Simulated scan of single mutants.
Amino acid sequence: MLSVVVAPWAGQAEPVFARNPDELHDAASTMKVAVLAALCRSGVNLDAEVPVVNRFESVVGGEFGNDPDRDGDPLPWELLGTHVPLRLLAERMITHSSNLATNICLARTTRQAVTEVWRRAGATRSSTPRGIEDHAARARGVHNRVSARDLVRLLRSLAEEPELLALLECNEFRVDLAAGLPSNTRIAFKNGWIPGTRLSVGLVQAADCPPYLIAVCYTGPLADGTDRTDPAARLLARISKAVWDRREQISGPGASTRPTPARSAG
């Protein structure tokens, strides 16, 4: 299953292209954007130091922990048992897609707050009811799922939070959508991958046309679950390039060609 949504960034413009926009896919790490927004909107002190732990409450009762072999970021694991600023973990959740950092951040907000992020974005199908690797919940049918249309809505909902978009520009996994763009192109994006699923959503800011949003979600045998060499990532890159080559057709007349200013993510 392949889902694609392309839309202008300006205002609440409707997509200019949509393929299976409302089909649900495993959220993988794209749910980390909703966790980030919930955390930052909660008013919690991001500079406060919090313990780095690997025990979390399951939504179906009991506890679970993350597997370091399934995490793409070693740094939070090296900090296990210490205290670090919450801001560091929020940043690693996005820039290095840390699963451990994500669950610690999720524990510092609430699942209801994450649900409110999706509601405020206007999402109709996507949800984040559990933490990453809460296998007991997954076995009971509790799934994190997203649609391409809702991912675009989620990113658009950050329009008044440039610091969050700036952090998304620091994503270290510059594959899939980013790989389909010229190397100097600004893109604020988050991708996710597990065996069987590859997906990514981004705000692309070109110098010669108005910014645009793109979300591509793929579920199928091409996705092997690797972070940078996934064949499905190359599929997403080809789609990203095809959209880039037609970027001047995305926004209507009169749309601003000025990209949003870059802000420090630190």
Rank of each mutant, 00 (worst) to 15 (best):
M1L: 10
S3F: 13
S3Y: 12
V4R: 03
A7T: 06
P8N: 05
A10N: 04
E14A: 15
E14R: 11
V16Q: 07
F17V: 09
A18F: 09
A18R: 10
R19F: 13
N20H: 15
N20Y: 10
D26W: 14
A34R: 07
C40A: 11
N45D: 15
N45Q: 10
N54C: 05
V60A: 01
G62T: 02
E63T: 14
F64G: 08
F64Q: 06
G72E: 14
D73W: 06
P74T: 09
W77V: 11
L80K: 08
T82M: 10
H83Y: 08
A90K: 11
T95I: 15
S97N: 11
A101K: 10
A107L: 05
A107H: 06
A107G: 05
T110P: 08
W118E: 01
W118F: 12
G122Q: 05
G131H: 01
E133S: 02
R149K: 08
S157D: 00
S157G: 01
P162H: 05
L168F: 04
N171I: 00
R174L: 03
D176V: 03
D176Y: 07
A179D: 08
A188T: 05
W193H: 08
W193F: 06
R198K: 06
P211A: 06
V216H: 02
T219H: 01
P221N: 06
G225P: 01
G225A: 01
D227S: 07
P231S: 04
A233P: 09
L236D: 01
S240M: 04
K241H: 15
D245R: 12
Q249L: 15
I250D: 11
G252R: 06
A255V: 14
A255H: 12
T257R: 10
T260L: 14
